[in-house]
Each structure stands twice: as structure tokens, then as C-alpha cells.
Amino acid sequence: MAKQSPAQRLFTLTCCLLAAPRLGLSKQEIYDSVQAYADSSDDAREKMFERDKSSLREMGVALEVIEVDAFEEQSAHRYLIAKGSFDWPKDLELSPEQFQLLELAARAWNNRLMAPSAQSGLTRLKALGVVPNSRELSVFTPRLIARHQSFDPLAIAISQGQQVSFSYRKADADASVRLIDPQKLRFIEGQWVLLGLENGELKNFLLRRIVSEVKILGQVAQISDPASIAQAEAELAKFIDQQVAVIALRTESEAWWHFGAPADSEVTLTFMDEALLAEDLMEFGTDLRVVSPKSLADRILRGLERVVSDHA
């Protein structure tokens, strides 16, 4: 028989582990069962198996190792796939329209780490058998850009469940080093936001304000339960809702069109971060004026004065 390809090896390994008895398989049993291992030298198959274990985990197959009392060291570890790895929600059905939206979401990625993950996730969902029935979303080309240096290491740390550290500089403050259990990356108001645990408390960090390299520490991160994460997200949404700015616009100006051409030439905005809103407003130069809050108006004034003096 021809030599097994890496994909065949992973597939056979998965089948063998799924068919294993409740106590799992020993390493030797796996080596005997999967042809590619059986055909390789001791050294080569140890390396292959190590790589395959991490590949399976990356692909969402929860490979577990249990320790048992055994006379021989070789059989002290037994491998099995945790229950739940292959349990899809019951009655999961996607409509053709939802499928189109998922394709659009996968197509949006422009990041070498996340684009393949989105595509492979989509492939897996296609096993459900839904066929998109229309091309009406094909005229859109969304591009979700994640070029922050911190993005890839954070995404890797999240998928591996590892702690990270980085230097973070809040607006109007000095940088400080943070030790974080990263949970989730989200795209909010045009900004990438990391949700992470710091000393057990869930906090949001703007990737923009991470001013050092992100170090992956090799320490297992504490994982927050979904309810706490949902609550933290709801709190952020509520916080944004409560931060309100009123802006007066010059009629028929670019800013006026941009903010939806309001009849009374005034627009009310909610915002996540005052410094970031100030940036979006300063860009319009003479087209607008902040009515409230005063802190935003003052911030813009300071920013413009600094630009003038920096370019004197």
C-alpha cells in the first residue's frame, strides 16, 4: 500500500480514536493501528504523533490524555476523544440566506491566520448540505483588516488557552505592563477589542493601544464562563449607549452628508471611547462643532492645537 499522506494519517487517527474503547488507546495501540506510524521509525513517529495531536486540537477535536496505573511507562498514557467534540446542536439548520451571510463573513477575512480558519469552518458547516440559492450578496466585497501586530499572537494565545503580557497605554495615561488571560477578540465600532481577564476581572483592551509586542507566556489561561463573557459584553454595550455626544453640522458639508444629512443639522452619537470619537470628528475640520459633552470639545481643541504646534 502507498504511504499515507498527512491528511490520511489525521483521518485514520481520528477514526481509530473514535472507535476506541471507553478507556482510550495507548500510544502503542495507536502506532500499530495507523499505517503511517506503523511504517515509520521510532523517532519519526514520535514527532509525527506530537504534531498530529496539536493539529487535531487546533481543528477542534478535543483529544484527551488520561493517566492510568501501568507497569510499563509506554502504556501509562491513554488517548481518547472527549465527548462533545462531534456533538452538533440538535436541529441545527441554516437557511440558504444564512449560508450566504456566512460565506460573506468568511470572504471578509484578510488575515493569514484567520482567513483559513473561517474557510475551514465554512467547509465544515457545508456538511449540513445547504446550497446558497442566490448571488445577491456577491456584489459585496467586505474586507476585515486585522493588521495590528498584536492580532496574530492574541488569536493564537486564545485558541491555545495561554496567558499573554503586553504594554498598554490608555488615552491620556502612561503605558503599563499587563498580564492577561485572553478570552475573545471582537470588532466594535471599527476597532479590534480584546476581552480578557486581568486579576480575575473581565476588561476590554483596544488593540490599537497595545504598544509593545504581545508575549505568549506558556502559562495556561483561566477561561471565563460564557455567562460572564455575555455579561461583560452587555455591560460594554450599555456603557456605549450611555456615552452620548451632540454634534452640530454645517449643512450640505461633507460631514453633514456623512452623518446622514439630518434636517436640523445636528446629530446625536453614542461612542465607546472619547479619544477615538475625537479622531473621527477632527477629520472633518471646519464642517462641525461639538455641542456636548464639553470634555469632547476640549479634547478636540487640545488635539488641534497640538497639530498646529507640531507643524509650526
Binding site: G60, G84, F86, A108, W109, M114
Partner: peptide, 24 residues
């Protein structure tokens, strides 16, 4: 074989698709 379905989405697959949907 006991394999009848692909495994559920991995963490990174979920993150990637969820962020794409957030964006849309």
C-alpha cells in the same frame, strides 16, 4: 467507523466566523 459528522467548529473557526459576522 464511529465517525458520522465532522467535529464541531474549533475555537478559532468560531472566532473567525463570529468576527466576520460581527463585522457584517
Amino acid at each position: 467507523s464511529m465517525l458520522t459528522e465532522p467535529p464541531v467548529l474549533s475555537k478559532r473557526q468560531v472566532t473567525a466566523l463570529a468576527a466576520g459576522l460581527d463585522y457584517i
